[in-house]
């Protein structure tokens, strides 16, 4: 009968399955990572719609306005009350005009919270119109099923 002679060597766990799994996890998260610069904010719960399919091509010259349920507008990192959005829109228009783009061609993307009052959304659209923006899209979250 033979006994193992190398009893003095320290027992080593097999690392291979662990490394395999870790690489699998890394690959999984790498594939799913989303570096898109779409403006999103956790405070805003978009309304659901079964017709909300992602657009084929991103809008040229998009301008995202996010409307919270409190009635404030999140725009380019600032939170401004609805009544004070005009100067920001005028500044944006100025930037567009200086870079030879027509504000009327820019698309205003409105990400409004599902619990916002429709009248507030309309007021925001009205402010944009008075500034010179003409194209609007309302953003909704895709509904399953």
């Amino acid at each position: 009968m033979r006994f193992p002679t190398k009893s003095s060597k320290a027992a080593e766990g097999d690392m291979t399955p662990m490394i395999d799994m870790t690489f699998q996890l890394i690959a999984f998260f790498m594939v799913l990572i989303n570096f898109s610069d779409a403006e999103q904010n956790e405070r805003i719960t978009l309304p659901l719609s079964s017709l909300a399919k992602p657009p084929d091509a991103p809008a040229d010259t998009p301008l995202t306005l996010q409307l919270t349920r409190e009635g404030t507008v999140l725009f380019a990192g600032d939170e401004v009350p609805l009544a004070g959005i005009k100067p920001f829109l005028l500044r944006e228009k100025e930037v567009l005009t200086r870079t030879d783009r027509n504000p009327a061609e820019a698309t205003v993307i409105i990400r409004a919270d599902a619990a916002t009052k429709t009248g507030v959304v309309q007021e925001l659209i009205r402010s944009c119109q008075e500034t010179g923006f003409e194209k609007f899209t309302l953003r909704a979250k895709q509904e399953e099923g």
Binding site: F29, S36, S49, K53, I125, F136, A140, Q142
Partner: peptide, 23 residues
């Protein structure tokens, strides 16, 4: 692994409705 787990964010697809708001 930690980096990718931390930056992982489930983003639901969003879509747009065009509305016509002429002046």
């Amino acid at each position: 692994l930690i980096f990718f787990i931390m930056t992982f964010k489930i983003a639901m697809p969003e879509g747009d409705f065009n509305i016509k708001m002429p002046l």
